[in-house]
Design a protein around this nucleic acid. Structure first.
Lengths: 339, 339
DNA sequence: CCAGGAATGTACAGCGCTGTAACACTGTTG
DNA sequence: CAACAGTGTTACAGCGCTGTACATTCCTGG
């Protein structure tokens, strides 16, 4: 046995009276090993308490069995739930997940694509929020990569998302079906460079146009930052200066929570005076009062499809970037009940 | 260059006309390298786009530069926030974090201590919920380990927690100071084997006794499961059959959210009729209506202390298990305002 | 002026595993 | 019955890096 106390393959081999490779074959479940030999090796493994050194295996095979999941914040409800799904899928396929928090930092996002992952993981699932796809394509070399969320063309990398235009239209239709006619959109974020919001705004507008309703730019609220309080602030402003609205389509559940707070302060009743719909269908939607109706991306499917695409890349599939849309639905709760 | 396209140390060495080890020294920032040599090596590194293979480095050094964080669910608000703090601390010290979700599964918790981590990480920070400390001590070999949360004696492993008895007493005192006299406790969970709740119940009882108030066992509510809905169900039952109460100390914020829902259904006003205090001070406390007062463990400190203890163990410190208490406070919000 | 050390660099073994080539068998086939 | 395919096993190189031992040069102080 090695002096550091750990049992190595060679120790087992010696004890069982076979070669290292045979032990390796047993450990890896290789078929062509005599049952009798296998039993002898297994006995030695158990007796010595042998555990393979994964680092050594990785160096030998060139596979790490790990993927990185890079996202802005692990404690954001949506990302937390997504992380859980990804971890479960990956785990069921024998992979482990390293969480990489970029915290919305541009340098951290670049690092995800470069040195940080060198030889550490077999692939990366990455939700960028600061750097553009063009730069991703430029920085990205041969590491298998799947992007999450809306990305602008030209896209040379695999990515998975929901149909944001359609989803925003569905949410707006849900409100229209409930008899709302003066529907606002909360909100565009200053300095937000992702396409996500533009697509959602577009879907919202399309639904209004289809319904023959006017587009009032003053009902499309701009928010100063990403915190719920920023959203509340924007709603407060709109309630005093802006045009009337009887419903709000929100960019995410946290913005919706901020909107609920501002409406409450103002004495507006939800959903009677103003209906509110969130986005992400995170656990938080259950906890607000009233509970939030929310656009629900199929997170499980999102994680599964992303992992499958990545898996193919890790198995050597090459070729142009692939584009996958996963389903969504409107999860109706009290803040915007069904018609 | 290697046929697989990756640049290796030896390629850089060849190009710069020095030995592999000198390149290694430059890469690792070793002091005693001639500036001129260093520059030449650096040039070769840049020209070839060399990135060290971390797996190989790990095999050579025996250090992985990674720790595992094992917890029940990454999408639980408290654990999500804790994960974020741990990831930030670890990252600032040059470590990376692997998230291990046990999902409250006993086998998964055992696996954390055994083969799963073999040679993969340098240490583990682990919040057990299913397996007892005795078993942890039995399974745990030489892998550096720090436990989070309440653990029963005898403790042979380092662990970090808040003073749950004291914290529960502080929360109860907060309610007493607000003039509440019929304070309930929500809740003991059926089949919960962790000590956490017993400690909290104890602190709650101590505070009542010190205040000269009677202990009414019927005000100590038992909950059928860990979901907020289970807590709501328990509160509903108490509202119809049980003794009156004018305040509730809750096991965590999610239970408190469940309690708020049940109270609302019943027409009880919070905090006028019943004050509610949560536990964990998770982001969720901001989103409920009214916003939850909550016992706030110093999560940042918790993460820091846990990492420091682990760090010492990873650096070879041996000896008996150490016990660390981190501070907490009562974060007062609308559901139980200060006196 | 020389022993003793610090500064700078090299050669090579070895971390613990897996892939590959090769070998010794056994049975199968034209 | 030679040729061959398939099975079970071994020996050993090699994954890409770092640690160790050692060579060489350059200072320093007695």
């Amino acid at each position: 046995m090695a002096s550091n106390g750990r049992v190595r393959l060679v120790d087992v081999a010696e004890r069982a009276g076979v070669s290292m490779k045979t032990v390796s074959n047993v450990v890896n479940g290789y078929a062509h090993v005599q049952p009798e030999t296998r039993a002898r090796v297994q006995l030695a493994i158990d007796e010595l308490g042998y555990r393979p050194n994964l680092t050594a295996r990785r160096l030998a095979t060139g596979k790490t069995g790990m993927i990185a999941l890079a996202m802005p914040e692990i404690d954001h409800p949506y990302f937390g739930e997504l992380a859980r799904h990804v971890a479960e899928i990956a785990s069921s396929r024998g992979y482990r997940v390293i969480i990489e928090q970029t915290l919305g930092d541009e340098a951290a996002e670049r690092a995800v694509l470069r040195d940080r992952e060198a030889g550490l993981v077999d692939g990366v699932i990455f939700q960028p929020v600061r750097i553009a796809t063009l730069e991703i394509a430029r920085l990205h070399r041969d590491l298998p990569l799947v992007l999450l969320g809306e990305v602008e063309a030209p896209v040379t990398t695999d990515h998975v998302m929901i149909d944001n235009v359609r989803a925003a239209a569905d949410v707006t239709d849900h409100l229209l079906a409930g008899g709302r006619t003066r529907i606002g959109f909360l909100g565009m974020v200053e300095g937000d460079i992702t396409m996500t919001n533009n697509r959602r705004l577009l879907g919202y507008q399309e639904a209004l146009i289809r319904a023959g309703l006017p587009l009032d730019p003053r009902r499309m609220l701009t928010v100063g930052g990403f915190a719920p309080e920023d959203a509340a602030e924007a709603v407060r402003g709109a309630l005093t200066d802006g045009p009337e609205f009887d419903a709000l389509v929100c960019r995410d559940d946290r913005f919706a929570a901020g909107a609920l707070a501002a409406l409450r302060e103002h004495g507006a009743s939800v959903p009677d005076d103003v209906a509110v719909v969130g986005w992400d269908d995170s656990a938080l939607a259950e906890w607000t009062w009233p509970a939030l109706s929310s656009l629900a991306p199929d997170k499980h499917e999102l994680a599964r499809v992303a992992f499958d695409l990545l898996s193919e890349r890790m198995n050597g599939v090459t070729g142009v970037g692939r584009h996958r849309i996963v389903p969504h639905s409107v999860h109706a709760r009290a803040s915007a009940p069904p018609a």
